[in-house]
Design a protein around this nucleic acid. Structure first.
Length: 309
RNA sequence: GCACAGGUGACCGAGUGGUUAAUGGUAGCAGACUGUAAAUCUGCCGCUCUUCGGAGCUACGGAGGUUCGAAUCCUCCCCUGUGCA
């Protein structure tokens, strides 16, 4: 007996992944596993474009609302919880449908991460302080000594990645790239079918603009305000797209219209980065169009049906 | 109508005689990405060729002029903003 099927839907924000996933879940008795780094947070509703309660009635959803608003949630956490959810769905004899917007999380789920040490806030602050004292380039120089290969592949200006490489190399007492050699622990036991949504760029940007504006007119500012009141403005998800701009409006840094425009811009840029990421995802069956389009849905349905035979 | 201020590449905005196809920023396009990734970073970005070293063309509102050389100086014209009529 062959491995069970795991359907993965990927595509940029606003490409209709939710609509498609609901359609497929109903058609193939599936359960949805969200792969979105902000939708994991509870209480962030409007700005995340989470499936509505009504939509969540239509099929079981997982990996949404699994983290507290002020909690630190990482790709590693996602990978563990996601795999667990997939196993459970499969054990129920149902088909897991992963809906991916966050490229790194999807890769962590499917390919795994290398076995490295977790974050160390203390070390990170120390490193950042050093950089501030000694000037830019200090950290990269340090990395060159600790892990020359990593230093070569990470640009000196990319401070977050430089810091992670240093952190790993120090905590593990060996170069990060050596740890990479040990490989990752990929998800096993499934036939993975990757479905990619690749809608027309101009149309996609129009949808993104409309949706970002709608978020503002349907309460994003109020939501941001209450969340900031409860968890502080520094809460991580409050700095993500849409929330960030709403916060700028609340602080009086931007007019409402400017805040909306900035959010639209941010979402468009994000969509582009997502496409760059997904393009190198292996074995993707691409469909030109939106997941909400019945024709696209039907074409995808057929591909899945034949994979299930 | 008069007086100021101004018109720079898709946009914002530097530059006020010569390494200037023209600093920056934004947008756009392409790329990277191994634990906060809705993050962070890189490259390209007037047009046409190119053996990728470069070559040619067109450009700073318009038309003339000064100069070896002008986005930068002069003249006239057009347009925009503000103030006074």
């Amino acid at each position: 007996m062959s491995d069970p099927l795991l359907v993965v839907i990927l595509g940029p924000t606003a490409s209709g992944k939710t609509a498609l996933s609901l359609h497929l879940a109903k058609r193939f008795s599936g359960e949805i596993v969200s792969c979105d780094s902000v939708a994991v947070y509870r209480e962030f509703e409007i700005g995340t474009a989470k499936p509505t309660p009504a939509e969540r009635q239509q099929a079981p959803h997982h990996l949404i609302d699994v983290a507290a608003p002020a909690e630190v949630f990482t790709a590693g956490d996602y990978s563990r919880l996601g795999r667990k959810a997939i196993q459970e769905i499969s054990a129920r004899g149902r088909t897991p449908v992963v809906v991916g917007g966050t490229g790194l999380y999807l890769r962590a789920l499917l390919e795994g991460l290398f076995a490295g040490p977790p974050r160390s806030e203390e070390l990170r602050t120390r490193l950042r302080d050093r950089e501030a004292e000694r000037g830019p380039g200090y950290l990269h120089g340090l990395l060159r000594r600790l892990d020359p290969k990593a230093a070569q592949s990470v640009h000196a200006n990319d401070v977050p990645k430089v810091i992670r490489a240093i952190e790993v190399s120090i905590k593990a007492r060996k170069p990060m790239t050596d740890l990479w050699q040990q490989g990752r622990e990929p998800l096993r036991g499934f036939r993975i079918l990757r479905i990619g949504l690749d809608p027309d760029r101009t149309e996609l940007y129009q949808r993104i603009n409309a949706r970002a504006r709608e978020m503002f007119t349907s309460g994003l500012i109020e939501e941001s305000k209450t969340l900031a009141g409860r968890y502080g403005e520094a809460a991580r998800p409050l700095t993500s797209l849409g929330y960030k701009q709403a916060a700028q409006f609340l602080r009086g840094e931007l007019s409402l219209e400017k805040a909306i425009e900035a959010a639209q811009q941010g979402h468009r840029n994000y969509a582009k980065r997502q496409m760059t990421w997904f393009r190198r995802e292996p074995e993707v069956k691409w469909f030109a169009g939106f997941g909400s389009d019945p024709q696209v849905q039907e074409a995808i349905e057929q591909v899945i049906a034949s994979a299930l035979e």
